[in-house]
Design a protein around this nucleic acid. Structure first.
Lengths: 348, 348
DNA sequence: TTCCCTGCGTAAAACGTTTGAACTTTCGCT
DNA sequence: AGCGAAAGTTCAAACGTTTTACGCAGGGAA
């Protein structure tokens, strides 16, 4: 069943039917300007008539282009169920599609790394380039690409000191916006729940703390917890941990919306009101952020658009239109109901 | 940058270095039993030493296999952000990976359908087979595959009367389980929120109504609303609509968990308690179903596993190990806190 | 010795395109 | 008419594999 015995129509058939050479047909198909309009028409008519489909394998073999892009995501549980990745992937798909590229999916599991598939997929031409979404600190194997001729673009991550191409949200800017917002509201004891397995996460934390300390808040009033999976459950548990040790926190800043949602759940389980007792702020502005109760104050970063852009940049790198890409996108505040004025200090 | 000028290592280099013919190297690489162990070793050593990577394009060209599987999803907003699809795709990836297949992603947008890409992708050998997840009633173009030699497998859908291969959860069984559960709890006025754009959704509705009517419930006490997007918002709005017309409903059955979550949100906005005032039941048992408040009673269907199985079946079809696939998986009840005894009829 | 078999390798023809170089036709210009 | 350039078309060599049919050596049987 798999391999139809019915001979496929090739460029040669078309050529024969039109009394031209196969080369001519190829040139027509590739829109060469060297072909006379009348010939082009004749060929195209036959192509339509016979419902000819170019064999992509043959094309790729000689052109050394597969017209596929590899999209790789980290090996997290349920990674494809994560809105964050979903949005970015959708954006990439959209843009790739416009240029006739296909998307090849991959997950950076042990095998993928151990067998160097990340390289081989490019070397054996299954893909012309690679987008790696949200890599982590541990993914040092990516540094190999510095000496490799294959185009790689990191999305929402980067490696300090390396020349690897990336496009990312400006997490330092995000931290400033968030910190200012919470400080404006009078918060002086803020807990941080943040992924510490990415450089962007660390940037966020450091900048956030810096800004707060710059406003005279003491380190001891800025407790933080590091996480790895960035999901609701971690948000829940870290909120619990933070409040156990610092019951007088008036705000929690979470590294993404999912963790913020988890934190809110914990607070409401504890009969703490959001934002009256504790303000909670998220990051990403995923679609469901507006459907939580209360609506989530967060930092908007258009992930779909980020996906589109990343694909565009990769294609540019591929086509030599760009030689490097180190771009930061600005996030902006989205204020809903989960943040509010700090409640007057009841202690002391 | 894209096309490294450094000549790639080919099978010929290996052959030359080992003093054998290219054919021999090929046979070694394909584990042919016709090659002596000593030769095999010699070749393999050289393969390792030179870090040789077979050119997949050349392979595909002659073998007529791309070792890629197309995974297609319907054109819903944020489709890749939907846990439902995410889980299935993850399962497919997992299984495909084990057999050395890659996953090619596609969305059934107008262009995809209009240009017959769903066929062309198979005809021009970009993919060896196709998995279509959760197609809808409108996707009649899929019926073309009945006369096509290319392997297609539908996941969680089917076309009545067609011979298209599918693997799906048994939605009729699911309806029976759900109906019995709610009836046991004493519910006699049950609202239904159900996707009416799939045959599986319609099956669910019809079976559910049938069972209830079989237990003596009147049609008028079984109002239902049809939806298309299956998301939280629709769940919210349909719950609103149902309760507006039937304020005495004691239970709502939603076609999936996301809609159930939306319904619960509406109810709590209306200060109706779940399950004391209204029971709500979902379907799918997505990961977050256990994290809602109250925990969601639902029907478990292992979507990840479903993905794995669908991939396995497609590969079997591809390799001729199976000639058709029409399989139904059993769902089972997962009872959490969102369903409870019907409250005594306050009206009449 | 002849013949065949078996075990191991190889030669060469695909697979269906693209592409630079070469070839032919057309056409403008003297 | 003659000539060269420009325009249009074709030739043939890739691209890197797989695979079929065949070659060859050595060994046992007749």
């Amino acid at each position: 069943m798999a391999i139809p015995r019915s001979k496929n129509i090739t460029i040669k058939e078309i050529a024969a039917q039109c009394d031209v050479s196969p080369s001519t047909v190829s040139l027509v198909l590739n829109n060469s300007p060297k072909i006379k309009a009348s010939t082009r028409d004749r060929v195209m008519k036959m192509v339509d008539k016979l419902d000819y489909q170019p064999n992509q394998m043959a094309r790729s073999l000689v052109s050394r282009r597969s017209k596929c892009l590899s999209v790789t995501v980290p090996n997290l549980a349920h990674v494809f169920s994560d809105v964050y990745f979903g949005e970015i992937i959708s954006g990439i798909y959209q843009e790739a599609n416009l240029s006739g590229y296909k998307i090849l999916l991959d997950i950076a599991q042990e095998k993928f790394i151990g067998d160097k598939e990340y390289l081989n997929i490019l070397r054996n031409r299954r893909a012309d380039g690679m987008v790696y979404i949200a890599s982590t600190i541990e993914d040092r194997f990516l540094l190999e690409f510095e000496e490799q001729p294959y185009p790689l673009l990191l999305v929402n991550h980067y490696f300090p000191g390396s020349q690897l191409n990336y496009i990312s949200v400006d997490y330092k800017k995000a931290a400033k916006l968030a910190a200012h917002h919470l400080l404006e509201l009078g918060h002086r004891k803020i807990g941080l729940i943040i992924g510490t397995n990415t450089f962007t996460g660390l940037d966020f934390r450091d900048t956030f703390l810096e800004v707060c300390e710059g406003r005279g808040i003491e380190k001891k009033d800025l407790p933080w917890c590091g996480v790895k999976d960035w999901d609701e459950q971690e948000g829940y548990e870290m909120a619990k941990k933070l409040l156990a040790r610092h019951p007088d926190l008036t705000a929690i800043m979470a590294g993404n919306d999912r963790m913020a949602i988890g934190a809110i759940r914990y607070l409401s389980n504890m009969n703490l009101r959001v934002p009256e007792d504790v303000s909670v702020m998220g990051m990403d502005d995923i679609p469901s952020a507006r459907y939580t109760t209360p609506g989530l104050s967060t930092l908007h970063m258009d992930l779909f658009r980020l996906g589109e852009l990343s694909c565009r940049h990769l294609l540019n790198l591929l086509e030599g239109k760009e030689s490097e890409c180190h771009e930061l996108k600005e996030p902006h505040l989205v204020l809903r109901e989960s943040t509010g004025p700090a409640k007057p200090d009841s202690a002391s």
